[in-house]
């Protein structure tokens, strides 16, 4: 029997090509780029540097706020300003993958997570520990 293999392969090939292009170009909606993350990290450091704890806390992820307040609701700003977070203003490199980002600054490394349309700081005042997770002054779970 002659088996005709017509165009049944075409949709599979097309789907693979589309999937490949999407992944290779990083053209996914969860990879929104690093500019907004960089801006948030700079705004956070600027707020801390000027003693504006309320603004800095607004830029933190809920888990980081909870960690700072430790049950004392509303204590975020005071607790945050008591921490020794190195002053940083210059950004040397930013990386964003999916819903997480890392902003390397002159005196600090900031980690962020995307929630809705905005980036929130999950960790700041971080020191590199080799292969192990960074040791951070502010850190959400």
């Amino acid at each position: 029997m002659v088996r005709r293999r017509s165009c049944t392969r075409a949709p599979v090939v097309s789907a693979a090509v589309v999937l490949g292009i999407l992944a290779l170009t990083g053209c996914t909606s969860l990879n929104p780029g690093t500019e907004e993350a960089t801006t948030t990290a700079q705004e956070f450091h600027s707020a801390v540097a000027t003693g504006d704890g309320a603004t800095a806390c607004n830029l933190l992820a809920p888990s980081a706020v909870e960690d700072l307040e430790d049950g004392a609701a509303g204590a975020c700003a005071d607790e945050l300003l008591q921490l020794v977070i190195p002053g940083a203003s210059e950004v040397t490199e930013s990386k964003a993958y999916g819903t997480n980002a890392q902003v390397l600054m002159d005196q600090d490394t900031v980690f962020l997570t995307r929630s809705g349309d905005t980036w929130k700081v999950t960790a700041a005042g971080c020191t590199r520990q080799g292969e192990r997770p960074y040791d951070c002054e502010v850190e959400g779970n």
Binding site: A23, T28, G98
Partner: peptide
């Protein structure tokens, strides 16, 4: 198609891996 899919796996896999690395406060 195998090679293309494996390449896509490596690129998307790296992105997903890097995302979880960042969530764990590690370099991507």
């Amino acid at each position: 198609i195998f090679v293309a899919s494996w390449l896509v796996q490596s690129v998307a896999g790296f992105s997903a891996f890097a995302e979880s690395q960042l969530a764990n406060l590690q370099d991507p």
